[in-house]
Design a protein around this nucleic acid. Sequence first.
DNA 1: CTGTTAGCGCCTTCAG
DNA 2: CTGAAGGCGCTAACAG
Lengths: 347, 347
Amino acid sequence: MPRKSKRELATLATMPGAMPLTLADVALRAGVSTMTASRALNRPELVSQPTRDKILEAVRAMGYVPNLLAGSLASSKSRLVAILLPTIAHSLFATTVQAIMDGLTDAGYHALLGPTGYSPEKEQTLLETILGRRPDGIVLTGSLHTAASRARLANAGVPLVEAWDLSDRPLDMQVGFSHEAVGVALARHYTAKGYRDFAVITADDPRGHRRCKALASELAAHGIARVPVQVMPLPASWQAGRQGLRALLAQGVPPRLVVCSSDTIALGVMAEAASQGLAIPRQLAVVGFGDLSEASQAYPSLSSVSVNAAQMGTQVASALLGRLREPSCNWGLVVDTGFVIRDREST
Amino acid sequence: MPRKSKRELATLATMPGAMPLTLADVALRAGVSTMTASRALNRPELVSQPTRDKILEAVRAMGYVPNLLAGSLASSKSRLVAILLPTIAHSLFATTVQAIMDGLTDAGYHALLGPTGYSPEKEQTLLETILGRRPDGIVLTGSLHTAASRARLANAGVPLVEAWDLSDRPLDMQVGFSHEAVGVALARHYTAKGYRDFAVITADDPRGHRRCKALASELAAHGIARVPVQVMPLPASWQAGRQGLRALLAQGVPPRLVVCSSDTIALGVMAEAASQGLAIPRQLAVVGFGDLSEASQAYPSLSSVSVNAAQMGTQVASALLGRLREPSCNWGLVVDTGFVIRDREST
DNA sequence: CTGTTAGCGCCTTCAG
DNA sequence: CTGAAGGCGCTAACAG
């Protein structure tokens, strides 16, 4: 005996929602087969005008909502894109995610969000369950994955975009910029301007570390060996900036230029500098990181590396959609979204 | 003839991922029925130790990933929670969403994110397709819904939490605070301190408007009729704050106190005030809104209404999880997360 | 253009 | 504690 004695169809307009309607109910009401009803909804061009009208009318009248779980299972197309990222409570990531979603939503996809919390292990667990939803695409933020994760991803065969980072061994498509290049560019830019006394305040985040390391080694190449680094625990906050600068100043001679791993931290640094009576940028130049071009406008003395997180999101979405539309598309794609040093200090 | 000639099972370890494995493959390898394999994964306590071990071993060896689409369809439990919100590119919402997701992820749920962009129509469209995924729960941000949306929601019978707003006609559960109460409290607090010349700079967002309206009418009750209001287009940005204050000042006599619809706007206002030579808070007091307690620390002169978006998210998650665990739970629940006026001005 | 048939991969139900 | 049968709601593949 079946679960529900083969649920009587044709209950028609009795108690809307009492038991969710199925395509069969709609088809019955419209006097066609379920297949035709299905086509009317998904490939309307294959159905004659009058039939289609009848069906759509029935759908409307009954308030039918297609069950996408069933549809996805049958067609092996989930129209779902998973987005894994460390945290959404960070304006840069949030901006990127927003842009990705805007692109996807317009194309009829939904976004499944997975917060990994900067932990590869968590990422791995999350990845496994999320793969169970059979997403049509995956967006990964950052490229630190466990070996197991990489393997899973590889034989899941799902189109994939790595965002924010440009790494050496891409898994599939990449949209981002090189954090190493940022560090090097900063070193060259400011040494060329005559700065010698650098310091770094960075959140304890892999990308920040990479920029910091590249900066330090490029500075070394310029004969600058001593670069105090202050690592602050996550999350990157105003307070972290204040404390970071305090710690730095306590260490000895004040630096002439502080490179921060985010604009948020930079703003804290500026606040602390102000309360310590350090003139910015005359006595202390501050460099932030992010796309808060507004911050630079509000605080004209703040220099910053600008990366346009929104545009990055747009690119991620279009890369993915390209592949989804045409599976042979975008293989090996690497988009370098670059960065710009917005220099507001006056020497 | 079936789609794929009844895919030969027992292909065992051939080409991992060539064709995704099914429970049947695992069961075969472990020498049990699919049913037992299913139980071993979902209700392990119903399976004997040795059998379970054999099965889990097979799962691991083959790299099997359960198809949650199929599982959800069969069990009518999707373990999916949809979160609809205007935008994620706003630190307050992002913080709330992050907290919601943390709560849900730990309980084994996934988050489906739907950006409505402050548009009820978009919300409605999105809602219909998202309901098609048969989420086990829905979180709505804000309570502006079209009649059609409310109807859909009602007979979808999905547990629902409205966050951020406390409205008169709740659809189901609510977690938030009263924006009207904020407006009234601000009016009382600052009139009591002797302020008379108020002004408002608000983003063009329904919640901001509600606070503003309540503020104005409470001020009127205190005999203050003239309250200049500057409405800025979304998104709420630093720039909006700067422009807002400029516009306000251009209008005539400078206000003594500016109430802003967000901390971001408030920071812009402060920047503009500084560049105009207005001392804060001596000449111009600025009140922000949000949970950027850090901002108040970095800028000691900024007053703000603090709402703790993170805690709100936690409450949303627990309300939802309560209902999901026990369907009779939390009916009619209303959690007022309140707010605090953090007053940093010195009169 | 429309209908029929046979599953998609899993879980509920009921027997052992 | 384990297994067999059937169906969740939809769509691919063919036939008319």
